[in-house]
């Protein structure tokens, strides 16, 4: 049931990213060139509505199942800045952030497979280097991780 629901939500999410321009190379370049408002409008609208909904859900305090809502903050560390900047460079080069890599694969953009391969190798590399990076980046214990998301 969880898998089926996730699949459905992912498909709707992916369709919206695809049709709104959020998974489009040109729209990402024009966002960073400040030549198109589209992506700022998408992210801004999403944040305003999600923030409002989160307030309501927090007041309720429980998920549909009755379990306490799981909305704790992510950990704070130096990786937020260093990793953020590195990710921004990659987002610019590919014109895709993680979700849109998968959306572009679905759309039939063949080069997106290379972006996915690169992302997986980069992730594997990070996992291997976690112990090394932990002190200089002030990362949390490995079990906690840098932040799930």
């Amino acid at each position: 049931m969880t898998a089926l629901l996730s699949l459905g939500l992912g498909a709707v999410f992916g369709w919206a990213l695809s049709r709104s321009g959020a998974a489009d190379y040109n729209y990402i370049q024009q966002m960073f060139l400040l030549e198109s408002f589209q992506l700022y409008g998408i992210i801004g609208t999403a944040v305003v509505i999600t923030a409002t909904g989160l307030q309501l859900l927090r007041r309720r305090g429980r998920a549909l199942s009755g379990a306490p809502l799981d909305v704790g903050s992510k950990p704070s560390h130096r990786g937020n800045i260093v990793g953020g900047v590195l990710f921004g460079i990659g987002w610019s080069i590919c014109g895709m952030c993680p979700g849109p890599i998968l959306v572009n694969i679905g759309e039939g953009k063949l080069y997106a497979f290379a972006a996915l391969a690169g992302a997986l190798v980069g992730t594997a590399l990070f996992g291997r280097l976690y112990d090394t990076l932990r002190a200089p980046m002030k990362l949390p214990a490995m079990e906690t991780g840098t932040g799930e998301g």
Binding site: I89, I93, A119, G122
Partner: peptide, 8 residues
Amino acid sequence: GGLFIGFG
């Protein structure tokens, strides 16, 4: 680009 995305 993907390497930067994954690692970053």
